[in-house]
Design a protein around this nucleic acid. Sequence first.
DNA 1: CTATCTATGTTGTTTTGCAACATAGTATTT
DNA 2: AAATACTATGTTGCAAAACAACATAGATAG
Lengths: 100, 100
Amino acid sequence: MNAQFKKGVLELCVLSQLALKDQYGYELTEAISQQLTVATGTLYLILRRLKEDSYVDTYLIESSNGPARKYYKLTDKGKTYQTDLKAEWLDFIEKVAILI
Amino acid sequence: MNAQFKKGVLELCVLSQLALKDQYGYELTEAISQQLTVATGTLYLILRRLKEDSYVDTYLIESSNGPARKYYKLTDKGKTYQTDLKAEWLDFIEKVAILI
DNA sequence: CTATCTATGTTGTTTTGCAACATAGTATTT
DNA sequence: AAATACTATGTTGCAAAACAACATAGATAG
């Protein structure tokens, strides 16, 4: 899969998945991997960026079958960002459709 | 406009524009700028890459109002690449649509 | 006790677009 | 003649983001 296509869009995918419900990193990796190939480390980089920019908050929950899970939750700022970024994406692919 | 969204897609836009007809750099810049904001230097970098990879050939034509124009023409390899890349793009945005 | 699955994280590399700058021919205005 | 603007091509340094590879660690099955 063309790695360049994903630039910026993976972030939107993560935000949109978190808009559905709080999820932990590994869970997100599996959800997104059903559609797109993505390196495991990449998701954690995106999540760290999102937290640094206050788009998400995190909380730990114990797991019965492995290490504790770090859940990610959209902040209000994150919800706004997700809405804006999605609109920008839809506008973008429309304009590309005209060109190609 | 989100610069990251463009990664890889600008190349497809250039290839698709050249699939319509041979064009010179400045002409391509104006055509693509009608839909997407793009720095002038960026187009020339893409065109150089495409030539290095033998996706396009070039030829010079004199101009009556300015310097000579370097026209870019898709090679057979370039046509195949354009078709494949377009299919990959359409598949990609479909998968993103499921996630967001 | 070794392998496997779950789970999170770091580091170095590569690709690509952007801003800024450089060059140059032609035409128009001052 | 000089300055400005438009057309046209190109280079350089920088920043963003994904990838591959690696590191860590708890729980469980063989």
